[in-house]
Every structure is written in structure tokens, then in C-alpha cells.
């Protein structure tokens, strides 16, 4: 199961990096959202540690949805989904592969957005320890996000107006389980608290990442049967 998932993830990333269509639009989009936040605060006082965590996670979630919907939309549009279903092995390895490739893409965009935030919001990281802590929170939050997002993207693919349905399905499920703890943790870390002070939020992120991924592995087969 793991090797097939890795193969699918590798294939997806290869296809993506040949054209870089999704990646480029995600990067452009994320810098636009960060700049929009910056412009919105251009005439009022900007406290980076207050605004940045919310701005960052809104950017991550909105840009991330491009990667999530592109993963399945490409297979559907180019009629390659049937071939994917014919692959020997478990159906859930398709889910794991798609999840992995989205995770890599979204993490790249998140690193870029974080740098853009530091530049435009003029935020100075205190040191490598603080940067690494923020990175840990970002990775855990993103893991839960792609965990449930990949399943919901497969659901949305079966509906009319799939671009609208993905956020409609995804946001209610992640607003408390991912966005709340991730924004709280990021905000406290940017206020120079240590990673040990946010252990409750980190536990919550880990719990929901596991719950979503396990549930998705069990349910994915029902979503894609033809």
C-alpha cells in the first residue's frame, strides 16, 4: 500500500512540476492574499503577531484548496481516473498518494507565504527555535487539512459545481478542528512563547490529523466506486 501511494504521489508531483500550473497559481494567489491583508491595514496600526496568524492560515487554506481540487480534477478531465482505479492494490493507496502530493505542494506554498508575511508584515523571527516551532505547527495543521481535504475533494468531484462544493464541505469540518488550534498556536508562538506552552493545541492538531486520515482511509473506497 505504501509503495503504491508513493508511486502515485511521485507521478502527481512529476506531472505538476513539468507544467507548474497549479503551483504557480497557488504562489501568485498566496502572495496576493498576504498583500491584500497588508493593504487593508496600511492606514491603521498593524500588529503582526495579532494579524499574521489569521492571515497566514486563511492564505494556507484558500491556496491549499487549489491543490486539493486540482489533484482529482486533472484525473477526471484527462480521463485518467479509470486507469488509476485499475491500478493493482488497495483503493486507499490512491487516497494516500493524492494526500502526500498535495501535502508537499501546500507545504512549499506555505513556506513561501511565511516568508512573504515576514517581509510585508515586517516580522522578525527571534531565532531558529521559534521558526522551527512555527514550522511544526504548520506541518501538523496541514497534515489534518490535507487528510480530510483529499477525501472531500474526491466527494466534490462527484457533484455539480465541484469548485463551490469543496469549500462548502471542507470549511465547517476544519474551522474548529484545524483552524482554531493552528491559529491559536501560531499566534502564541509569534508572541515569543515556547512550543511547550502550546502543547494542548499541538495535541489537538495531532489527534484530528490521525482521526481524519484513519477515517478517510476507511471511507475513501465508498467515494470513488464507479
Amino acid at each position: 500500500m505504501a509503495s503504491m501511494a508513493l508511486q502515485i504521489a511521485r507521478k502527481d508531483l512529476l506531472v505538476e512540476f513539468r507544467t507548474k500550473r497549479t503551483l504557480n497559481s497557488m504562489l501568485l494567489f498566496s502572495i496576493l492574499v498576504i498583500l491584500a491583508f497588508r493593504f487593508a491595514f496600511s492606514t491603521t496600526k498593524l500588529d503582526a503577531a495579532v494579524v499574521a496568524p489569521a492571515a497566514l492560515w486563511i492564505t494556507f487554506i484558500l491556496a491549499g484548496m487549489f491543490a486539493l481540487s486540482a489533484g482529482f480534477a486533472r484525473e477526471k478531465d484527462q480521463d485518467t481516473f479509470q486507469a488509476l482505479l485499475l491500478c493493482p492494490g488497495k483503493r486507499s493507496s490512491i487516497y494516500l498518494g493524492k494526500m502526500l502530493s498535495s501535502f508537499v505542494l501546500i507545504m512549499l506554498v506555505e513556506l513561501f507565504s511565511l516568508a512573504a508575511m515576514a517581509v510585508f508584515f515586517e516580522y522578525d523571527f527571534a531565532g531558529p527555535a521559534q521558526f522551527a516551532s512555527v514550522l511544526v505547527v504548520m506541518m501538523l495543521g496541514t497534515l489534518g487539512f490535507v487528510g480530510v481535504g483529499t477525501l472531500l475533494s474526491a466527494i466534490a468531484m462527484n457533484t455539480q459545481m465541484r469548485e463551490v462544493m469543496l469549500p462548502v464541505l471542507l470549511l465547517p469540518l476544519i474551522v474548529f478542528t484545524i483552524i482554531m488550534p493552528a491559529v491559536t498556536a501560531t499566534s502564541r508562538l509569534l508572541n515569543n512563547e515556547s512550543i511547550l506552552d502550546v502543547s494542548a493545541e499541538i495535541r489537538l492538531l495531532i489527534t484530528f490529523a490521525i482521526v481524519y486520515i484513519v477515517a478517510a482511509i476507511m471511507l475513501f473506497g465508498y467515494v470513488i466506486e464507479e
Binding site: 480530510v148 477525501l151 472531500l152 466527494i155 462527484n158 457533484t159 464541505l169 465547517p172 469540518l173 478542528t177 489527534t207 484530528f208 482521526v211 477515517a215 471511507l219 465508498y222 467515494v223 466506486e225
Partner: peptide, 16 residues
């Protein structure tokens, strides 16, 4: 099929 999967996911996430 689709709505069942989503219904299960919703009920799973709320009590937790």
C-alpha cells in the same frame, strides 16, 4: 454514497 460518507465524517468530528 457521497452524503453518507460526509454524514459519518460530521458525526465523527463533533463529539471529539
Amino acid at each position: 454514497r457521497i452524503s453518507s460518507v460526509f454524514g459519518i465524517l460530521g458525526v465523527l468530528c463533533i463529539p471529539l
